[in-house]
Design a protein around this nucleic acid. Structure first.
Lengths: 221, 221
DNA sequence: CTCGCACGTTCAGGTTTTTGTCAGGTCTGG
DNA sequence: CCAGACCTGACAAAAACCTGAACGTGCGAG
């Protein structure tokens, strides 16, 4: 439920899917890239908070990929996944700029634990300047000096809106993010939550406005 | 890259010495503490850049020691060493606020690689000193002049909360930390312990509040 | 051995928070 | 001006949580 964004490079659809689903249940937002090329594209576009890279990708070695990321100034923590656990392999992973290394088969709980440990250390609180910040550490929205607590559903929705900056988020996307278990909710339910969020946000001075884009969705400025 | 100060808690003189010598060759400054009590003293006095802790110390569990460090606002990265590599052991290490976990016997080169990876991103996330201290040596909580004794389970829970400063700790994490042997406990059991902790904490003046974050977990302010 | 104590766990019940929905109104684009 | 989209206060059901009061177990003292 932290809403931190994780990007996964994994070509085995079964494993990739399992990891993705598991992380979502742990509250991460995540996205799967089956090739290094796609992965690079996503990284540039979405600047995720954490990266998981399978070393054996079809179109590149994961370590080379990591090296490329670091060369471009991307500093998000990297966890490598691999079938080979010989020592030289592990060392070359760290040398490439990785932060942790897990050997398949691994326990999913351990992946989560290690990822959390890395993210905890990487947390950069507060970009300041009037922007709205949704903080996974205290499950609240911050803006200016003020802050308001959020319920789980409110949190999921606002996190998505904030993650998109000022971009419009379609209603369907919001519904998917707010009710990840595929619950069926009346169309109106989203409206109601938007209203709640507006009221909470208004309580903070200098907070952005939750603007309606008629017939499409909402955006946060 | 040279001169980073590493503090090692290791009671086996042979292993401790080997690690110390090896790290010196890699250009670290380092110091060895054979007991938790000494380790705490050195940490306070020298504020090292990185910590290596053997979980099986003679006078305390290394995880409790780590808890205590985090509760005091010490944020230097921690690598655990241990002979046991069962999954619950590893998870409890991370839950204690550790950053990495190595199973003996380990390759020295890997220790260095992991330590370097951690130091590389030691951004010092700044811990808010909550004025509540948990002491692994007498298993008690201290605050202001007062102090309250804690039962083992209470200790594990409160230590995790204190280690996270004011951050929210998820229910699942608390259960994992409080019952590291994977015991199955009713959901309600955690509630009961929280209630007890609240009562004990309230007895101390100026103690932080154990706040509920509905649907997520608890936090200590 | 037996008692009392400390600790861990569970139960039942009451309280609070969250959630999904509705009804009735307002707004928007065509 | 109309239909459809949106807004919002209210509310009842559900979920989550709190707490006092047990119960069980292991252990040390007497």
């Amino acid at each position: 439920m932290t809403g931190q964004r994780i990007l996964i490079a994994e070509d085995d659809p079964q494993l990739g899917d399992a990891v993705q689903r598991g992380l979502r249940e742990e509250g991460f937002e995540c996205r799967l890239a089956p090739t290094a090329a796609l992965f690079l594209e996503f990284v540039e576009r979405e600047s995720p908070d954490g990266l998981i890279i399978d070393i054996g990708l079809p179109d590149a070695d994961g370590r080379d990929l990591c090296h490329a990321l670091r060369a471009r100034g991307i500093t998000a923590p990297v966890v490598f996944l691999t079938a080979r656990d010989a020592l030289p392999d592990r060392l070359s992973g760290f040398a490439a700029g990785g932060d942790d290394y897990l050997t398949k088969p691994f326990a999913f709980a351990e992946l989560v634990a290690r990822l959390r440990a890395l993210l905890r250390r990487n947390a950069v609180p507060d970009a300041g300047d009037g922007r709205l910040r949704v903080d996974p550490l205290d499950h609240a929205a911050h803006c200016g000096g003020e802050s308001v607590p959020l319920t789980p559903t409110e949190y999921r929705l606002l996190a998505l809106l904030a993650a998109r900056g000022g971009e419009v988020v379609r209603r369907a996307e919001l519904v998917q993010a707010g009710w990840p278990h595929g619950a069926i909710v009346h169309d109106n339910t989203l409206d109601a939550y938007i209203a709640r969020l507006r009221r909470k946000i208004r309580a903070m001075p200098g907070a952005p406005e939750l603007a309606t884009v008629h017939g499409v969705g909402y955006s946060l400025r």
